[in-house]
Design a protein around this nucleic acid. Structure first.
Lengths: 326, 326
DNA sequence: AATGGTCTTGTAACCGATTACAAAAAACTT
DNA sequence: AAGTTTTTTGTAATCGGTTACAAGACCATT
């Protein structure tokens, strides 16, 4: 018998819906041998009592636990804060399900045991990881826009467009994009930047950088010292934005008085004395969507993808352009 | 019956040692009501068959899983690579035990459920986390040297001494320490540096910095531009060493031709074109020692601490001092 | 030798699920 | 309407442990 203090068990569900444990179990696991009427009735009870199967009990029956692999694109330990947050968000969902998160090296061949499914970050065209997983029959979900697969991605181009508009609306006409690089993400964000800048004919400078603080710092400092000028900067990541801000400060410039800066990612608690204007990604939602897709992939449904909307967060690093008319 | 393909179960142990499941279970869980003779016999069998209890089955019996909290000293998501590696090393051990790792915020008060034990990183004198845990009766193990508690720590001072000796042996007599700051770790490493430098009367410069790349970059660049000179630099972390190298390069200096650099931590796969000379911490061993101590703390043994030795890794960032006699 | 108290061990129920198998119900046949 | 097949459901064993309780072994008293 279940009281208010203990979670309901499969027996509670069985009793409440007038069927046996076995039938409830079949409903839970989607076995086809259940009559439609009873299936619906049982599922209503499950929803009403807010029942979730005990992972320990399932693992015991199954004689093995479920695992979800997480395949990053690089092996180095300098995990970005974004990746750390993403992993945390995932874990928040998988832990209650008893699903173990596995950090996979970029090279997936010869794994001790294959995971039940894999989340592949930043897959590229013809990525060897994808063909390997397909060949092994392991369901995969990609983080990042990709055709013919299950995928989730933030709206990179839209977000970049949004960020750039913010600078344009503040009257800036001399813009710079920090983050030119080979990755898909860098591409999409650059495209959004250029599309926005083009609409009003603003001048654009393109600075090469990856996602790291140091790379942002060096690119901005070097460019500025070489005579490159701009009053509005859009950085492809919050980290490189931090580097940019530091570089500009070291050059004696005032933020946002002399240069306005917008970042991307929406990381909380940055090491900055003031708040960064940025495009916030809904990391928890990306993670939970990824898990939904994992479920669909496992049950063999048709591949689909989803863009997760982003949101502009106004901080203290954007001000009106010097002498500009907003 | 257990064959070679399946892990042994408690029944196999019981059969092989001629006792009942119950007795084996009592041995495993250290219940005192087992005769010394049988306890030894059972444990021999357990060791011989390499038996580990199935976590799912235990969790099912206990009606709750075991959790290990990990309390970092800050809440921001910019987890350092060191912390990422440490967490991974921990997970490699806890996962097979079915122990869930919990990321705790720096503020431990009002947790939904208290973890079975907590690993506290970088506790300071009179840390509120410690008193809270003690009051709640949650066993704690500290990462970092600390009296009157369970603790593990790398040999920070010894490692710093080692690193500095490396510079001295290469003939450097104008040294700098990068990393002056308020943390215990920064203190210990600085002390090791100064102790070594003092033995030969080398000149020492002290540069303030935390553990990050950017902070290393800015400190070194600013100092050098202010006229501070040195030919050998010891950085308290690999990350700040990377920043230092970048700064020196941007200043037109050659590494290690003009300045030799030694880091600390021994991170693998750094974003550097050449290998960094560094003091490597044995992170896996720190992690496994921490878990051993957790076990001791839970079973109420007397608090003890352990220093884990470090090791110098020779890379390509140390060369003989210009004109120096090694 | 019978009594009583400690220690130590075995027995069996239980944790919360899954699933093979059998039984019951429903749907067709002829 | 009786017999067959198919669909749906219940029953009971099972996964690998823990633990309350009972029973057995051992020892010291009287």
């Amino acid at each position: 018998m279940s009281d208010a203090l203990t979670r309901p068990t499969i027996d509670d569900i069985a009793r409440a819906s007038g069927v046996s444990k076995g039938t409830v179990s079949r409903v839970i696991n989607g076995h086809s041998t259940v009559a439609e009427r009873t299936r619906v009735r049982v599922q209503e009870v499950i929803a009403r009592l807010d029942y979730t199967p005990d992972p320990a009990a399932r693992n015991l029956s199954w004689r093995t636990g479920q695992t979800l692999g997480l395949s990053l694109d690089r092996d180095d330990p300098m995990l970005s804060p974004y990746q750390v947050l993403f992993r945390r968000a995932l874990e928040a969902h998988t832990a209650p399900l008893g699903v173990q998160l596995l950090d996979l090296r970029a090279d997936l061949t010869r794994l001790a045991r294959l995971p039940s499914a894999v989340l592949v970050m930043h897959a590229v065209e013809g990525d060897p990881r994808l063909s390997f997983l397909q060949q092994q029959g392991v369901p995969a979900v990609l983080i990042g826009h990709h055709p013919e697969s299950f995928w989730v991605a933030p709206d990179d181009e839209g977000g970049a467009h949004l960020a750039t508009l913010q600078l344009l609306e503040a009257g800036h006409r001399h813009l710079a994009y920090l983050g030119v690089g080979p990755s898909q993400v860098a591409h999409d964000r650059q495209r959004g930047f250029e599309r926005a800048a083009r609409t009003v004919g603003a001048s654009t400078q393109l600075l090469a950088a990856d996602f790291t603080v140091l790379s942002g710092y060096r690119a901005v400092r070097r460019a500025w010292e070489a005579g490159v000028r701009f009053t509005g900067l859009f950085a492809q990541s919050d980290e490189s934005a931090i580097g940019a801000v530091a570089a500009l400060e070291d050059l004696g410039l005032n933020i946002p008085g002399d240069v306005s800066v917008v970042g991307f990612d929406g990381l909380p608690e940055l090491p900055l004395p003031y708040s960064l204007t940025t495009v916030s990604q809904d990391i928890p939602r990306i993670a939970s969507t990824a898990l939904t897709l994992v479920g669909e992939a496992i049950s063999g449904q048709r591949p689909r993808g989803e863009f997760i909307p982003v949101q502009l967060i106004s901080g203290a690093t954007v001000a009106s352009a010097p002498g500009g008319s907003p």
